[in-house]
């Protein structure tokens, strides 16, 4: 792999890891591990931990994929590897 491509791959992996941290935090963090303390906070009729587990985590998942798509579109062009 040329130096340029190594840099492309590194950037990709870094950003991907960052998104996966968010993925883990909203589902395993907010939805499972910290569900009880978060349930003490109420947003409207929703206990927050419950909301993350049954609604919020899923919304965040959808956003993560589209953000990754947009980032990679930019990165592909920057390193001239786009289709």
């Amino acid at each position: 792999m040329s130096k340029n491509l190594q840099e492309y791959w590194k950037k990709n992996v870094t950003f991907m890891s960052f998104l996966l941290v968010i993925w883990a935090v909203v589902s395993y963090g907010c939805g499972i591990i910290f569900v009880e303390p978060l349930n003490a906070i109420k947003i409207g009729g929703f206990p927050l931990g419950f909301w993350f587990a049954q609604q919020g985590a899923i919304y965040v998942f959808v956003c993560l994929i589209f953000v990754y798509y947009a980032y990679m579109q930019k990165l592909d062009r920057e390193y001239d590897v786009h289709e």
Binding site: L20, F50, A53, Q54, F61, I65, Y68
Partner: peptide, 19 residues
Amino acid sequence: YAGSIYLMGWTGGYVLLAL
């Protein structure tokens, strides 16, 4: 609440797939 395992479990895998 315990049903959340299915909601998160059957959607979260798509993030892994996409990334």
